[in-house]
Each structure stands twice: as C-alpha cells, then as structure tokens.
Amino acid sequence: MQSLVAGIDEAGRGPLAGPVTAGCVILPPDFPVEMLNDSKKLSEKKRIVAEEQIKKYACWGIGVIDHTIIDEINILQATLKAMKVAFDMAVMKLPDWCKKNSLVLPDVSQMNAVVDGIFVPEINCLARSEVKADAKFPCVMAASIIAKVGRDRIMCEYDKMYPGYGYASHKGYPTPAHKEACRRLGPSPIQRLSFKY
C-alpha cells in the first residue's frame, strides 16, 4: 500500500499588501508529476493548467489569511495559520477522495506532511519542514502552485476594487511601481500596515 503524503507551501509572505495563502495537496499515485515544479519556475499559463489538474485529481485545500490578521499576529504566524487551514480543508475532503480513488483512508495522525521552509504549522500528523521542498517533492510543488495561483487570482480581483495600485501586475510585492503608488495615493485598504514601505 502506497502511503499518502501531504505537501504544504505558502505564497505571499513578502508582499506589502493582500493576504498570505497556503496550499496543501495530497497527490494520487498516478498523478502526472512531470507538469509540476516550484510555482516560481513555471509560467503563469503552466501554473493555471497545473492548478486545474491538481484540483481535478488531487486532494487539496487552501488557506487565506488577510492583511488585517497579518498585521495583528505577524506574517510568520499568519503563514502558519494559513497552512493549518489548508491542511484541515484537505483532510476534510480526504474520506470522499480516497473512496473515489479506491484508496485506503489513512489514519491522519499517522500520515506524513512535508512543509516547505523551516517552520511547521500545528497540524494533526507527522509533519517535517525542509528548505527548498518545493523543488524536490511533487506534492509540495503542487501545494505551491495552488497557493500561488489562488493568491494571484485574489490580487487581480483587488486590482479591480482598488485601481491605480497595479495589483494585477505586481500582486502586492514591493516593486518600485507599488511603492510609488502608495506614496501617491496613500496606502490602499488591503495594505499591510505593519510592513515597511
């Protein structure tokens, strides 16, 4: 019996605006892993195609923690919170997903999770962190794609709500254009006020 591994990764720790997101993905044994990579190494088009396949065939969850919580509890704690939300969502889907894929439902507390980075969220399984896991483990690559595409989509929606800040292009990262827009227009309603500009 092949053991199921949950991959966990985040997107959006560095931006000056918007949420931090995290993905959790458990891949089926026959998933076409050749389409996966660290989300930063894939084009936007390839990320979207991969996300569609992940959501169709994998067991997945996404966590979104907004800018107000980031300011309240700090970006690290907000990231870990997003990871826990993503994991819990994936676990909630696990029974139906295992049944659909003719897989044995595991005891979640005995499952393994690999988290990209150096910190591990408080989740109910055997979790370990590894630097650059998003370049080594397909399930973490998939989690990074879910987190990145999900966050980009949110930032594109914010771009429509708050025109002038350029969120659709820089996604809230500290680009010169973003900083200049903040100086000219003042902070937007989704600005992380605890971050330096």
Rank of each mutant, 00 (worst) to 15 (best):
E52D: 12
N74T: 09
W60S: 13
I54P: 02
I26P: 08
I26F: 06
L193A: 10
L4I: 10
G164N: 04
D152S: 08
A58V: 00
V5W: 07
C59E: 04
S39R: 00
S43G: 00
I118L: 13
N112T: 14
K99H: 15
A168N: 11
C125Q: 07
D71K: 01
R151I: 06
D152Q: 11
I154N: 08
C98S: 07
D134V: 03
M141D: 06
G12F: 13
E157D: 13
H67C: 06
L16V: 06
I69Y: 11
I146F: 07
V64N: 05
N101P: 02
T68Y: 12
R13I: 06
P28R: 03
P174K: 10
G186V: 02
A147K: 00
I48N: 11
M89R: 13
S102L: 12
K148Y: 08
V115Y: 13
S109L: 09
V131D: 08
E10G: 02
A86P: 01
A135F: 11
I75S: 05
A86I: 00
G23R: 02
A90V: 03
L4V: 05
W60Y: 14
D107T: 14
L126R: 15
A82G: 14
G186W: 04
T79E: 01
C59S: 02
G166Y: 01
K148W: 07
V91R: 00
L126Y: 14
K160Q: 15
S39A: 10
Y165D: 01
H67E: 15
K93H: 15
E34N: 14
I48W: 09
Y165F: 10
M83G: 04
Y173M: 08
A86Q: 00
G18Y: 05
I48Y: 08
S39Q: 04
E44A: 12
F195H: 10
V5A: 11
T21V: 02
D107Y: 06
W97E: 07
E130Y: 13
K55R: 15
K179N: 10
H170G: 13
I69W: 09
C24T: 11
K46P: 06
A17F: 10
E180D: 14
H170T: 08
M111W: 03
A113I: 00
D116Q: 05
G18V: 01
N124V: 06
N101E: 15
Y167Q: 08
K148A: 04
V85E: 14
E10T: 05
V25Q: 09
V114K: 14
S43F: 03
K81I: 06
T68K: 12
Y167T: 03
V140Q: 09
E34P: 05
R183F: 13
M111V: 00
P138S: 02
K81Y: 12
A113K: 00
I190V: 12
E72H: 11
I145D: 01
C24I: 03
T21K: 01
L94W: 02
M161F: 07
V64L: 03
A50F: 05
I8Q: 06
N37H: 14
N124C: 05
G166P: 04
I146W: 04
C59F: 06
